[in-house]
Design a protein around this nucleic acid. Sequence first.
RNA 1: UGGGCCGUCGCCAAGCGGUAAGGCACGGGGUUUUGAUCUCCGCAUACCAAGGUUCGAAUCCUUGCGGCCCAGCCA
Length: 554
Amino acid sequence: MSTNENPPSSNFIRHIIDNDLKENKNNGKVATRFPPEPNGYLHIGHAKSICLNFGIAEEYKGTCNLRFDDTNPEKESDEYVQAIMRDVQWLGFQWSELRHASDYFEQLYDYAVQLIKDGKAYVDSLSAEQIRAYRGTLTEPGKESPDRNRSVEDNLDLFKRMREGEFADGQYVLRAKIDMASPNINMRDPALYRIRRVHHQRTGDKWCIYPMYDYTHCISDALEGITHSLCTLEFEDHRPLYDWVLDQLKTPSHPQQIEFARLQLKYTIVSKRKLNQLVTEKHVSGWDDPRMPTIAGLRRAGFTPKSIRDFCERIGVTKQNSWIEMGVLEYCIREDLNENAPRAMAVLRPLRVVIENYPEDKTEYLEISNHPQKPEFGKREIAFSRVVLIEQDDFAEVPPPKYKRLVEGGEVRLRGTYVIKCNQVIKDADGNITELRCTYDPDTLGKNPEGRKIKGVIHWVAEAHSRPAELRLYDRLFKVPNPDNEENFLEALNPNSLEVLTDCRVEASLADAKPESRYQFERTGYFCLDAKDSVGGKLVFNRTVTLRDTWEKN
RNA sequence: UGGGCCGUCGCCAAGCGGUAAGGCACGGGGUUUUGAUCUCCGCAUACCAAGGUUCGAAUCCUUGCGGCCCAGCCA
């Protein structure tokens, strides 16, 4: 289970549970479940639900099952099942029991037979279009199907033959007999079973009828002894149906459904249909593209499980529709990585600096600490010699006001080493700066020069002692706060969401970086070694997030 | 225009009749060999609005206003 140091904050669901416990409801037990449909990868919105369900189970010493809601085989697959299990565990949670709604198909069928026997369900021959027409509208009641009063015997017979495959897909449907005039449309005789000749990833071709969500979910919860069935707000209108089904049947328990607001993050989408489209139409490299709001994408970008858990804790759980700013997620990952990522140096856009008064054949191995505030992170050796590479941005011919980096005639410290002074700017025929000729002050290693203040410190690598690397700079995938509002969300894609830098140089110690290891590249951001593309000695780093920058903002 | 739900700082969010927590963001000072981190300070006489009940209301009542969800044989 997870180990979040931040104590969970109170929310209305915990209040309800506290109250239930006080009244000894459910004999003091707390049982939750996380019920994803395996029709896509898990995303940050699921993380909220996972943290809530598993977190509550943990806090109340209860249980939390992972249950796949696999009642619609058309869209579901084992690839998704595997990915979901991997992501839940990576987030730091372990389910009490692994279940599938399809484990209950036989029982679900028996319960349906019971409903029919009790006159609470009937087989309808209306087509999908007719059912829609009969349903009425939001303001007008629906009308009853001619089949609504079919005899129990006929219903039993037809339902059995539905299962046996006697009918074509869509020819019949099993419906609950509730109230066609209900102001709640979900109660106007909702479908319980449909005929669908589709291979199911777990049950194969055993079934040609599949139960609907509303019917399946409540019974699955009841069979598992779930006490608190947490779901998102759009299911609020379904709660009467959830309760109705369980009220008609002798299920082992009657869980309480509680709804909370789903996560909405600015500049992202979490619609599985749209995420799927991004993948299949190759707008991103896959479900785990670092720009994707999926758990797999966040992982590949370098987010830590802890930072995501922390994020879910910070945003709270309420019934209010709300939009979380990206800044909160960014804060969470920066906080974790600032604490736990070792520092290193990488030059994204190199500019050659020749230190003219430093001997050609000399190399010094200097010690530099891996974390400025944490001596326990230890030190590493870093090579310094006559030619170093600095960031192009760290030199300016015409510096903006308050610029504290290198300028012609000015001084700056190379992090962890000496103060250098720029004496000459070398340009090519087109006027591009190609090289800086500098001198260093040998008396500034580990101490400040006397009589002058060096304002700037810049990062660097020694040309001869650095390694080539590819750095991928990611930015938000969308350029508008709510892409879902766009007529076509694809037009809201940020064309600059990925910048690939192939001429970067990183310090030699990074040659041994392990896949998925995270570093702070000083002054530029947090990076994670890409586990997929760093092959054959090639170093590919993904930028997780930039460092907070109060200078660029002006 | 039917039903369900929600309105507390720019964004989240505590609060549950006794006089507005906290976080993010933002602004300012200090420390710093990362313009990072850290640290200090500031940031709602005000809780969608208007009435009412009360010694006392963000909390209770009434009426408005605004937003979200529902008419799949999807979940």
